[in-house]
């Protein structure tokens, strides 16, 4: 995979909810090299504070040279990015990491919680483009309330997959967790589950998949400085002992290769 450092122009800014933002950037080299599950490192501002780039999974990458990131304003870095204007340039580095391994034969079940929905749109598109029979595919999206889910529903619907939604407060879709939906679904044997979301959610998804003998890939996040295997700051416990690094071994892992606290 080739990596690029690009000055990417912001061409669209969308405030999807009170604290969720989506940016569309012009980054042709990165867009051309990207696959679902890859991430980019973006610098917020040009100063020394905040110092480090921030990692973002690719929400979309299109053949017209555009990429999208979708994030929640959680700290100063994301707050600065949320105050950028259309036309401004951002220093973007990527694509990075190992993405989802798409099984073109198996039925797909995509499970996204909160900001974990971000990489699944790109994945849904690629799965759709593979042009196979998809009536058995399923997308499950969840979040705290409607603002986390509703604004993204149309983007997923265009791929024609069956879609189920859940929110913690019941303001959109059914009330409950994405894992409640997953549990209630009769997935076909051999279905591959592709998930992204908070760690407790992923732990439950992993548990459900183990119980049903389904293969499960998860995208996880970590603090990281470089995103390319140099700082070694993003380690996680490996199921076989020792550590894996989110930036080069992941961010997408087979769930069984990680240690789950549940």
């Amino acid at each position: 995979m080739s990596q690029h450092q690009e000055k990417a122009r912001i061409i669209r800014f969308e405030q999807l909810s009170a604290d969720n933002v989506r940016l569309t950037l012009e980054a042709p080299l990165i867009a051309a090299a990207a696959a679902p599950g890859h991430f980019v490192m973006i610098r917020a501002g040009n100063g020394q504070d905040p110092l480090l780039r921030r990692p973002f999974s690719l929400h979309q990458a299109s053949s017209n040279g555009q990429i999208q990131i979708y994030f929640r304003i959680v700290g100063r870095g994301t707050d600065m990015l949320a105050h950028c204007r259309v036309g401004e340039l951002l220093d973007v580095f990527g694509p990075l990491g190992r993405g989802y391994r798409i099984d073109r034969q198996a039925p797909a079940c995509l499970v996204g919680g909160g900001l974990g929905i971000a990489p699944l749109l790109f994945l849904a598109k690629r799965i759709c483009q593979s042009g196979r029979d998809h009536h058995r595919d399923l997308v499950i999206l969840g979040g705290r309330s409607s603002g986390d889910v509703e604004p993204l529903v149309e983007d997923f619907r265009q791929f024609g997959r069956s879609l189920q939604c859940a929110t913690d407060d019941g303001s959109f879709g059914r009330q409950g967790l994405v894992t409640d939906v997953l549990k209630a679904e009769q997935l076909e044997p051999g279905t591959v589950v592709y998930a992204c979301g908070p760690e407790p959610m992923l732990a439950r998804v992993h548990r459900i998949c183990v119980d049903r003998g389904l293969s499960c890939q998860v995208s996880i996040e970590s603090v990281m400085a470089c995103g390319m295997g140099a700082c070694l700051g993003c380690n996680v416990d490996a199921a076989g002992g020792g550590y894996l690094h989110v930036c080069i071994d992941g961010p997408v892992f087979n769930a069984e290769d990680l240690v789950w606290n549940s």
């Binding site: 480090l52 603090v223 070694l232 700051g233 993003c234």
Partner: peptide, 23 residues
């Protein structure tokens, strides 16, 4: 050496702290 358990790094004002543990 496999280094220290996570969390190994954190950003601070105009800097960062690391405890990689010489992996």
């Amino acid at each position: 050496r496999q280094g220290n358990p996570p969390q190994r790094i954190v950003e601070t004002a105009c800097g960062m702290l690391n405890a990689i543990g010489l992996q």
